[in-house]
Amino acid sequence: MASHAHSHDSTHREGYDFAHPFPVWGLLLVFAALTLLTIITVAQASFDLGNLDVAVTMVIATIKATLVMLFFMHLAFDKPFNLIIFLGSFVFVALFIIFTLSDSRMTSSSFEPVDDEPPVVSTSG
């Protein structure tokens, strides 16, 4: 199996030489950046940024996600069509979440949270 029939004659044929290995230093660099961003996002959680809190964590998460997408998932060098499909899904996600969120605030009064009693102390361990 190790002797590949194609390896001696087909390497330079059109459609046969398409592997573009991503360099190891690039992989390590992306990993280092992701780890650093994780540390930053954990560290910032101990500062009170008020309403900015969610925004900041989400921006950091999105930077991380972009790094993973571009380099680990090869979207930076891939056929653009794959990128368009993938980003297209987020358009629909945004539509879905925006409309559902605004709906949930406007229509349903039965949706309001209930203030019920806390559970009682259990007697058995």
Partner: peptide, 16 residues
């Protein structure tokens, strides 16, 4: 994240 690194590295190893 580390598993993502090794996975991306595995793809590279398959290519090389």
């Amino acid at each position: 994240l580390f598993s993502s690194l090794t996975m991306a590295w595995a793809v590279r190893c398959a290519q090389t």
